[in-house]
Simulated assay, not measured.
Amino acid sequence: MKTAILVLALCFAAPATAMPVCGSGKRVTCVVDGDTFWLGGVKYRLKGVDAPETHGKCRNERRLAKRATNALSGFLGRGEPHLTTYGRGYYGRVLVAVSIGGIDAGEWLIQKRLARRWPDGDKWWCP
């Protein structure tokens, strides 16, 4: 009994692990960029959010895209995500609102200035 309690305590004491960033190969559970991720083999796109593109037009966009990707990766590693889906978007991705611990991922990225509201937010990352 003491061993089970110790193992359980160690599980809760361990720091959260970021969701991996996608590489080449099959994508199952990983972050593509600041507004797109795979979870359990399903590709999701944050609804109402647009993050800078990793192959963007200017150096600042590409730099911010890397930060946004890493931020979403870390956010999704914080705990069990709560997903609310809204159908499919233009590229067939499932549109989703994601929250962990009551914090919405899209709003969190916008507040950190790593994303903008879509479609009417200012695209400020390239002058």
Results as ranks from 00 to 15, higher is better:
Thr29Glu: 01
Val21Gln: 08
Arg45Ile: 05
Asp122Arg: 14
Asp33Tyr: 02
Ile100His: 06
Ala14Met: 07
Thr29Asn: 04
Val21Pro: 06
Gly56Asp: 00
Gly34Tyr: 03
Asp35Tyr: 04
Thr85Phe: 12
Lys112Met: 02
Leu6Cys: 11
Gly79Gln: 05
Val7Lys: 13
Thr69Ser: 06
Arg45Pro: 08
Val98Glu: 01
Gly34Cys: 04
Arg67His: 12
Ala68Trp: 02
Arg116Asp: 12
Thr84Asp: 13
Gly77Met: 02
Leu46Met: 01
Gly40His: 06
Phe12Lys: 09
Leu64Trp: 15
Lys66Glu: 15
His82Leu: 03
Gly77Ser: 03
Thr3Arg: 14
Leu64Ile: 12
Pro15Tyr: 14
Leu109Phe: 04
Arg27His: 15
Val28Met: 05
Val94Gly: 08
Lys47Cys: 08
Cys22Thr: 10
Ala71Ile: 00
Arg117Asn: 09
Gly23His: 12
Leu6Thr: 14
His82Val: 13
Leu64Asn: 09
Thr3Phe: 13
Tyr91Ala: 12
Ala16Thr: 12
Gly92Ile: 11
Ala68Ser: 05
Arg63Glu: 15
Thr69Gly: 07
Val49Trp: 00
Ile100Ser: 04
Gly48Pro: 04
Pro119Met: 01
Tyr86Asn: 10
Pro15Trp: 11
Leu10Phe: 13
Thr3Lys: 13
Gly23Ala: 08
Leu114Arg: 00
Ala65Ser: 10
Trp124Lys: 03
Pro81Gln: 01
Phe37Met: 00
Ser24Ile: 10
Asp33Glu: 04
Ile103Arg: 07
Trp108Ile: 06
His55Met: 01
Ser99Arg: 15
His55Gln: 04
Gly41Ala: 07
Gly74Arg: 05
Gly106Ser: 02
Arg116Ile: 09
Gly25Phe: 11
Gly41Ile: 05
His82Pro: 02
Val49Glu: 00
Trp38Tyr: 15
Cys22Val: 07
Trp108Asp: 05
Asp120Pro: 07
Ala16Lys: 11
Gly121Phe: 10
